[in-house]
Design a protein around this nucleic acid. Sequence first.
DNA 1: TATTAACACGAAACCGTTTTCGTAACTTTT
DNA 2: AAAAGTTACGAAAACGGTTTCGTGTTAATA
Lengths: 340, 340
Amino acid sequence: MKPKITLKDIARELDVSISTVSKALKNSKEISKDTKDRIKAFAKFYNYRPNNIALSLKNRRTKNIGVVIPDIVHHFFTTVFRGIEKYANSMGYNVIICISDESFDKEVINMEMLANGSIDGFILSLSAETQRKNDFTHLKELLDQGIPIVLFDRVTQDVACDKVVLNDVEISRESVEHFIGKGSEKIALITTDNYFNVSESRKDGYLEALKDNDIPFDENLILTLPHDLDNTKLITEFFEKNEIEAVLCVNEIFAVQCMSVIQQMGFRIPEDISIIGFTDGILSRFSSPKLSTVAQHGEKMGELAAKMLINRMESTEVVEEPFKTEIINATLIKRGSTIN
Amino acid sequence: MKPKITLKDIARELDVSISTVSKALKNSKEISKDTKDRIKAFAKFYNYRPNNIALSLKNRRTKNIGVVIPDIVHHFFTTVFRGIEKYANSMGYNVIICISDESFDKEVINMEMLANGSIDGFILSLSAETQRKNDFTHLKELLDQGIPIVLFDRVTQDVACDKVVLNDVEISRESVEHFIGKGSEKIALITTDNYFNVSESRKDGYLEALKDNDIPFDENLILTLPHDLDNTKLITEFFEKNEIEAVLCVNEIFAVQCMSVIQQMGFRIPEDISIIGFTDGILSRFSSPKLSTVAQHGEKMGELAAKMLINRMESTEVVEEPFKTEIINATLIKRGSTIN
DNA sequence: TATTAACACGAAACCGTTTTCGTAACTTTT
DNA sequence: AAAAGTTACGAAAACGGTTTCGTGTTAATA
């Protein structure tokens, strides 16, 4: 057991002052070569490393960034997080992660805990409950205290900060138009009411595409599902009641559930019904047929979010740069569940 | 913009000493009720919160724990992490996460970065490369410095510390015996050489089951696949060459790939071939038929790991408790891919 | 009334760094 | 030989807290 060694320890052992040790280790030219060599050798031998906490206190920056996401067992968030971690790490930052679990209170508590010095900035995606309540005072207060925040994916207009979002409207439109281009007119949308803004945008894109192509909108072709339950029954009913040629699902779980149901009902994919999902996760890649899907490029998104945050944190400009909203372009990956 | 307020600020404004403020806020009875009230009111008004970094420095504990895992986009690790986060948070700890990306160097560098004061203890699962190299000096050094470590899932005998593992051997045996109980004798194992100890254990269980039931071991019935590629060709060949009644796969990706291939070849699941996978993830739940699988109870594992770590960190015993290895009992979830 | 106890607070040390500034001891210049 | 300039180092403050100990004032006791 050899406990951590401090500057003070070195100073005592070598009979010099703490400042001398500090300077020597930073190669200051105030210190003679002899003394420097002695100190460096000693430090190396005892594997001296400066204490991060002391440095944080002194420098008033922790080199930690806080990431708050609604859920970790979720492909999209997971990939975003990986992007954040990679970039942050490459810039010498550590990442403290908190899961809000879609709960407003947890989001608030976690952020307040971290905000008292533990981190220099936040990257977050709003919890479902926060979006429902439309209460962003916790974010505003942190921004007020000078703590930078970058919002991604589930964002809000109500807080002024940097953001990274997906072009949800456009990619939905593009997806629906892909269906239309292949001759489909009865196009369904399977969505959720869980995280509002992104599903809303996706619906908007769906509607736009219909409108632009003079296809009348049929309310019955929209199915709203609760999240993460077994929706077999609802989906079956939906397809029994309606004659459908193509389906856009706002996530990959709905998409594979849907595929499985309609295959069970005797339809062929994509000959009878085409499907496109969101999130190019493991489900999409290993379903049969393979699911055509909207790749959200989560890793890129995370990387960009981290880059924006670190830029702002390290910026020395006197006048702060205006807040930016960056848009990540999703891409439609055409696989076996659509006619291509 | 209202910047964070410190004890010093309060002291100055209220014309008392810093120590008085500190004591007042901690409700010390050294301070008169009057003064306490004044100080508390002021502190509340300005939303005073003690600075975590300063506390960490003073108390020489950060209330942060470091989690190092090989991969985050992986259902099992993700659930373990969720368990860690939940328990840690409930105990007032934050979690700093580092992804080793299966690389030895990253594992070492990340841990050293964190070890200089940023965290009080580690929870980690060894990277593939670390296991391959069999080099654990970084862990031993940290333990030497008095930093507690809890290893989970991918562990090693070579370091003396707390561990949490799955009963891989037993659950594999149980799975294979389930096949045998349903009349299968030609039982295949699809495995990986990527993370040694767990796949080795799973193979051991497989072998034990065969032996106990007097089924001769046929080397050809073991297929070793590289990770995460499209293994369709290898799997197809494997099933063409061998007559197989049941397959145990060491992860769910292999299992669904396998299912898809053999369905393509015209076999019925589970009538012709039964399948069991490892990891009760999203793939298993949404495949058709639904995959019978070994649930690893990752969340429980994470929670237990966190509990062991925090226990040790907070223990005030003079003589340290001996290291423990806890075993999580996996359970076989029987779904549509097996005859039940 | 003198002594002691209780009360209410402040000074200072400490956690581990960095950094500014001061200075003793030489060396160089005039 | 006196003045000025270097060199090589140490003291101390600062980051933001906690905590021990000392002390002046008032209240209780002898």
